[in-house]
């Protein structure tokens, strides 16, 4: 690991001012990605600014009935919070299926959204990777790509986004609150994650030093009937091969509202809007679910080893929908 300097920020304002003014400084929150990346040499800051003492770790109910998750709230605390459990069960499920208990105690919500991809070509310093070294190529295209993405890919990058929590949050239309040198702003969740396109090195539409201070969850009754299904080789402590976060509202057997996120198969937390549209007004049953999944995966681009993910993503989505539909049956969500 290269050497670097360290400082500990005392308040949000000075932290943001400090890092914004210094392109060689980076934030250090839970460290579960940052320390790993430092050790791999993928990030090479002159200094890390430890923000763990900043007062942005609270989980609060908002006046409008929404819920605010502090940027430094730990995954474990958010997952266990009674309001989150009750109103957004898929968020709790997604969080608790991520990583391990130890890592969830460390990782912050902001850090979870900012985590880097697990592509081994990105992590390994001397292999072609456009994300790590723009213009160097993508060794994953014809390499060992079993875990890579089939949605949202480009010829420049096929790395799958690793977060579970973000899959649930995108389905919720959460809002990300950022603090920059110019003050506060908000970004819609889906807009916060950029597709790789021809610039996979750019992952978020934010400036250097902008800090995630909070993630706001909107009032969303349908989210009370929601579920996160994660498929992976082993039962625990592994990233998703495919996952689906589903919230479903039905009335008299007809879908009134569907919110779906897909994970493990896309280059960003994937909002399955085509599937949602296909479902709207349909009868909540296997045929509509299958149609919706087909619609969402219609443009999927499989590679050498990950072809199974197209079908697996569909089945995961259908299974999650079926599970939630069973819960809503006989009443409104």
């Amino acid at each position: 690991m290269r050497s670097f300097a360290y400082s500990r920020a005392a308040d949000v304002e000075s932290a943001v001012a400090d890092v914004s003014a210094d392109p060689t400084s980076e934030y250090l929150a839970g460290g579960t990605t940052e320390v790993d990346m430092l050790r791999l040499g993928v990030v090479r800051p002159r200094r890390v600014v430890d923000i763990n003492d900043l007062p942005i770790a609270a989980i609060e109910e908002l006046p409008d009935g929404g819920t605010r998750l502090g940027g430094l709230a730990r995954m474990s605390d958010v997952a266990a919070h009674p309001v989150v459990r009750e109103r957004y069960p898929m968020v709790t499920e997604a969080l608790e299926k991520g990583a391990s208990a130890q890592l969830r105690n460390m990782a912050s919500m902001g850090g979870n959204l900012m985590q880097r991809v697990r592509c081994s070509y990105f992590r390994d310093g001397d292999r072609a990777c456009n994300k790590r070294e723009p213009g160097s190529g993508c060794a994953a295209l014809d390499g060992v790509n079993r875990t890579h993405a089939v949605l949202g890919t480009s010829e420049h990058c096929i790395a799958a986004h690793p977060s579970d929590a973000a899959v649930a949050l995108t389905a919720l239309d959460a809002v990300i609150r950022l603090r920059g040198p110019e003050g506060e702003r908000t970004v819609a969740f889906d807009d916060f994650f950029l597709l790789p396109g021809d610039a996979p090195e750019r992952e978020h539409p934010i400036g250097h030093g902008e800090l995630i201070t909070a993630i706001d969850l909107p009032v969303l009754p349908v989210a009370r009937t929601s579920h996160y299904l994660k498929v992976r080789d082993r039962e625990s402590y592994e990233f998703a091969l495919a996952s689906a976060a589903v919230a479903l509202g039905t009335e008299g057997g007809t879908v009134t509202e569907a919110r779906i996120g897909l994970g493990g198969v896309a280059t960003k937390p994937w909002r399955a809007r085509r599937a949602e549209q296909a479902l709207a007004g349909s009868e909540a049953g296997p045929e509509a679910f299958a149609r919706a999944a087909d619609a969402e995966l219609a443009d999927a681009v499989p590679r050498g080893m990950n072809g199974f993910k197209v079908e697996l993503a569909k089945r995961t989505m259908v299974r999650a929908l079926t599970e939630v539909a069973a819960r809503t049956r006989g009443g409104t969500a």
């Binding site: 697990r118 081994s120 390499g143 082993r234 039962e235 592994e238």
Partner: peptide, 15 residues
Amino acid sequence: ANPSLGEYLVPVNAD
């Protein structure tokens, strides 16, 4: 291609 305990999968307790 996968010289790590994150990618060489051995059983965990839940398996």
